[in-house]
């Protein structure tokens, strides 16, 4: 079970958080102008990387804030956490 360093609250148990899938997928500003394929790319396609992955997490049983995490999915090592809207730190 991870210990996650919420950018707003500090270190907390994983059980306080909810994972929210891949990060940095921006919702298209004009969905109606996209083809089915383009929309499907946004809607369904995820990388599911073994290794360094950028993820969204929500401190659902804490401050309720969403934030980003860089995690190595092969060993669950959390490389960095950063706020929504921030540039991912270099790792």
């Amino acid at each position: 079970m991870f210990v996650i360093n919420c950018p707003y609250c500090g270190e907390r148990e994983q059980s306080e958080f909810k994972a929210g899938g891949e990060a940095h997928i921006v919702r298209p500003k004009q969905p109606t102008e996209l083809s089915d394929d383009e929309w499907a790319e946004y809607l369904f396609m995820r990388k599911n990387i073994k290794g360094i992955q950028f993820e969204r997490w929500n401190h659902i049983h804490g401050c309720r804030k969403w934030f980003n995490m860089i995690r190595d999915t092969s060993n669950d090592e959390i490389k960095a956490v950063y706020k929504m809207g921030d540039e991912p730190p270099k790792i």
């Binding site: 921006v26 929500n58 804030k65 969403w66 929504m84 809207g85």
Partner: peptide, 13 residues
């Protein structure tokens, strides 16, 4: 509320 917060915080801040 989780979903609404998600959109508010991440897509429409």
């Amino acid at each position: 509320i989780g979903k609404l917060e998600d959109y508010l915080q991440t897509e429409w801040p």
